[in-house]
Structure formats: structure tokens, C-alpha cells
């Protein structure tokens, strides 16, 4: 017991080491939120392109259709590459190859960009499954009123699809939060990197890493709670 108290004191209090954790939480959340926003934007865009390409039937030709074909090909390439390579590798390439000229204070942005691009690939397939879950009659009704494909998607299909995919989207968000723990590979002092630094100062691993796990767990629990709340509110409209 005394040992534990001593360790806790060493880990958090001496040399104000709690700051590594506090600042780390800040960085981790920042990267997660930025990547989430970017990932959802990319995901919806890719999903709409893929669905548009899949839903066109018949023999209509023209520039628009060739363009859509090219866009669809680009999206498929993106999905294949991103889902087929490890997140850490993408992060390393992004920082040390693509942005090798970048200053260190841009690290947070590059990391967020990298995680956003990664997450977008997974979100895209989730959103596409949501779009496919909505009855075709819904988009036919929208189109029959003269709305464009994009308007029909935006006002009619996607709002309904979001409700169906919220659980899967929540899953992706939790995965994303935990996956940012590899930020340390490029030297960004996120929560995990912070705990590693503390360990290197105190030469003791137990308390820093157990605390690290507990902090992630609490963050995930909070996130799950928020998602459940959101889902309940969206579902409320089903019972009206």
C-alpha cells in the first residue's frame, strides 16, 4: 500500500508529471475530433460517389457518366490502399515522406489529417451500407418531385441513413480514439507518449501504464454514453 502511494506520487506529483497526462489527453482528443470531422466528410463524399455510380443503370452516356466512372475508380483505389495498409505505416509516410518539410508545430495537424484520411475509408463503407438500407422508393419519391440526386441524398436519404448507422459509426469513433495512441511514432506527445515519457523518468512502468489504460477506458465510456444519448434522441422520432 505504501509502495503504491509512493509510486502514485512519483508518477503524478513529483516534477508535476501529471501534466504529461493532462496535455496528452488534450492532444489525443484534439486529434480524434479533427480526424472524426474529416473522416465523416470524406466518408459521406466517397459513399455518395460510390452509391451514385452503383445506382446508375441503363445506357445513358455522356461526360458526366465518364466522370463518375473515374471518380468511382479513384474512390475504390483510396479504399483499397487505406484499408490495406496499417495505420502506423500511413502515419509514418505522411509525416516523414509527404510532409517531410513540415515544422514540428504542424505535427498535430499532419497527424489529424492522417487519421482523418484513414477513418474516412471505414466511414465511407459504413455510410454506404446506410444508404443502401433506405428503401429505393424514398429516393424515387425525391427524384419524382424534381430534386437532384445530391438534394435527394442530402435531404431525404442520408438523414434517415444516419439513424441506421449510428451504432457502427460509434464503433468507428471508439476505434479511432484508441488508434491515436500510435501518435508517438512520429514524436507527437499524445496521452500514450506522455505515459511513456513518465515511465522513462521514474523507471517504473506499473502505475503510468495502468493509469493510461484507465484514462482510455474512462474516455471510451464517456463517449459510449454520449452516443447512447444521441441514439435515444434520434430514435425518439420513431415512436411519435
Amino acid at each position: 500500500m505504501e509502495w503504491l502511494l509512493d509510486q502514485l506520487k512519483q508518477t503524478f506529483i513529483e516534477g508535476s508529471r501529471w501534466r504529461y497526462f493532462a496535455q496528452g489527453i488534450g492532444i489525443t482528443l484534439e486529434v480524434t475530433v479533427l480526424a472524426l470531422l474529416l473522416g465523416v466528410a470524406i466518408g459521406v463524399l466517397v459513399a455518395v460517389v460510390r452509391s451514385a455510380h452503383d445506382s446508375q443503370r441503363g445506357n445513358r452516356k455522356g461526360l458526366g457518366h465518364v466522370l463518375l466512372g473515374i471518380l468511382d475508380w479513384v474512390c475504390k483505389l483510396y479504399l483499397t490502399v487505406i484499408r490495406g495498409t496499417p495505420m502506423v505505416v500511413q502515419l509514418l509516410i505522411m509525416w516523414f515522406v509527404v510532409f517531410k518539410w513540415a515544422r514540428d508545430d504542424m505535427m498535430l495537424w499532419v497527424a489529424s489529417l492522417s487519421f482523418g484520411i484513414n477513418s474516412g475509408a471505414y466511414v465511407a463503407e459504413i455510410v454506404r451500407s446506410g444508404i443502401m438500407s433506405i428503401d429505393l422508393g424514398q429516393s424515387e419519391a425525391g427524384r419524382s418531385l424534381g430534386l437532384t440526386y445530391v438534394q435527394t441524398m442530402g435531404y431525404i436519404v442520408i438523414p434517415q441513413a444516419i439513424k441506421n448507422i449510428l451504432p457502427a459509426l460509434g464503433n468507428e469513433l471508439i476505434t479511432l480514439l484508441k488508434e491515436t495512441s500510435v501518435c508517438g511514432f512520429i514524436g507527437l506527445t499524445d496521452l500514450t507518449k506522455g505515459a511513456m515519457i513518465v515511465q522513462s523518468r521514474t523507471y517504473s512502468a506499473f502505475v503510468p501504464y495502468i493509469s493510461l489504460a484507465v484514462i482510455y477506458l474512462v474516455m471510451v465510456l464517456a463517449l459510449t454514453g454520449l452516443l447512447n444519448l444521441l441514439e435515444r434522441r434520434l430514435r425518439a422520432s420513431d415512436r411519435r
Binding site: D135, G137, Q138, E140, A141, G142, R143, S144, L145, G146, L147, T148, Y155, I156, P159, Q160, K163, S237
Partner: peptide, 29 residues
């Protein structure tokens, strides 16, 4: 799209938009 605004269509399965109120269904387009 422009021509469809002048051709109303009514479906067998109604296809009302379930996430919108009746008023919003009618005035959306």
C-alpha cells in the same frame, strides 16, 4: 429534374418521408 417538377407522381407504397412531418413532406421540394 426541371421536367419532373411539372409531372407529379403518386406511388403504390406512398413513399412519404418518415423523418419529416406532413407539412415538411409537402413543402420540401
Amino acid at each position: 429534374n426541371k421536367l419532373r417538377t411539372r409531372m407529379g407522381m403518386v406511388f403504390q407504397q406512398f413513399n412519404l418521408f418518415p423523418h419529416l412531418s406532413v407539412l415538411e413532406n409537402i413543402r420540401l421540394a
